[in-house]
Amino acid sequence: MPIPNHVLRFLFFLLVRVLVIFMLGLNIKRRNLLPKDGPAIVIANHNSHLDTLVLISLFPLKLLPRIRPIAAADYFLRNPVFAWFSTRVIGIIPIQRGSAQKGFDPLAPCYEALDQDMILVLFPEGSRGEPERLSRFKKGVAWLVERYPTVPVTPVLLYGLGKALPKNDFVLVPFFCDVLVGENMYFNADKHQFMALLTDRFAQLTDEGHFPDWE
């Protein structure tokens, strides 16, 4: 698990915070439900590179050293400069996407982080996908939660960032970002049931949002 440069990370997220408030703007519902300490798992939908930045900026800066987003190694470590920025400044924990080989657990770095009382930020859709559309959650998250049944899982629905900066685009257009935090969840005896519960929770949050069309 790579160790980020805490000073650079602090300065970077201070800047992100100012830009997020001014250029985007946040409408946050139930911020008080976000974890106040680790170990904890935050699960969000994924539409934009801004997702990680906005999610991290929701937490107080003093928690910053504890917050680690989980991200795909093949994408974020694709060249040395990007890898340096992702691991040292953003502070990602890279994991291998796709098939798990025998005797190799792609989630091992997550276990290590949770054992160190970190707050993990996960995007179970696996990819940013189509803007403002929820794709199916990958089951890896259930494996993780099964192993840590006492760690709270906080669902967070983000809306608007896929409009502000969608996949394959580089022009940022200001849009408010809605952040809907859901009630904490815990592993409930079965991986399929947990995934069903998670999907259901995100559907509820989406309904609550009354979001305008984006077609």
């Binding site: 703007g25 608007g160 409009k163 200001p174 849009f175 408010f176 305008p212 069309d213 984006w214």
Partner: peptide, 9 residues
């Protein structure tokens, strides 16, 4: 920004 974020675009 508030207006564009709330209307259907």
């Amino acid at each position: 920004k508030e207006y564009f974020s709330r209307i259907p675009t």
